[in-house]
């Protein structure tokens, strides 16, 4: 299992997380607090197999021709909210983690930034699955198919020219 979760400075990320609409829940005693982890791949904590939807910070000059420069994040399966998700492993605060999605560190432009509404293109590297990116969380709003008909090494530009365009994704 890869270990690729990121930890960035707590102050900046707490503010960023709040801006992204992630509720930080704290119990009365700090020892039992919910923790936050910054990840750029949801397979870091889910039991995933291969075949991911890549969300890229930058767009490409034309869809279907290579990858953009800069950073990216990867998702397997259905993701209700590209801001992140809260998982309660055992029903207690100590057993609850807020996962916040950020673009991978050390990958140039966009590294460490929040993924939600901040991606410009996407790749589908699955050998079997199609994906749809939705423009609102909870699989709502306009959606854009990112099929696996194209090579994994070619990105598709997302519909919106301004960022503010990716908030959830689902197997298609």
């Amino acid at each position: 299992m890869k270990v690729r979760s990121l930890r960035t400075r707590m102050g900046a990320t707490a503010a960023a997380a709040a801006a992204a609409g992630i509720t930080m829940v704290y119990a009365a005693t700090p020892a039992a607090a919910v923790t936050t982890q910054y990840v750029s791949d949801n397979c870091d904590y889910r039991n995933c197999t291969e075949g991911d939807l890549y969300m890229n910070y930058h767009s490409v000059a034309s869809s279907g021709n290579g990858n953009p420069s800069g950073s990216f994040a990867a998702f397997y399966g259905n993701q209700y909210n590209h801001a992140g998700e809260t998982i309660s492993y055992n029903g207690t605060d100590a057993g609850t983690v807020n996962y916040v999605f950020v673009f991978a560190s050390g990958q140039g432009d966009g590294s460490g930034q929040l993924v939600k509404n901040n991606a410009a293109s996407a790749n589908n590297c699955s050998t079997v699955d199609g994906y749809r990116v939705y423009y609102n969380s909870g699989y709502a709003g306009h959606s854009q198919s990112i099929p696996h008909y194209w090579s994994c090494a070619s990105s598709t530009n997302l519909d919106a020219t301004l960022k503010n365009n990716n908030a959830s994704s689902h197997f298609a």
Binding site: N81, I87, N136
Partner: peptide, 11 residues
């Protein structure tokens, strides 16, 4: 509205 109530997976 979709983001109004915090969701916890596993619950």
């Amino acid at each position: 509205a979709i983001d109004l109530i915090p969701r916890v997976e596993g619950a």
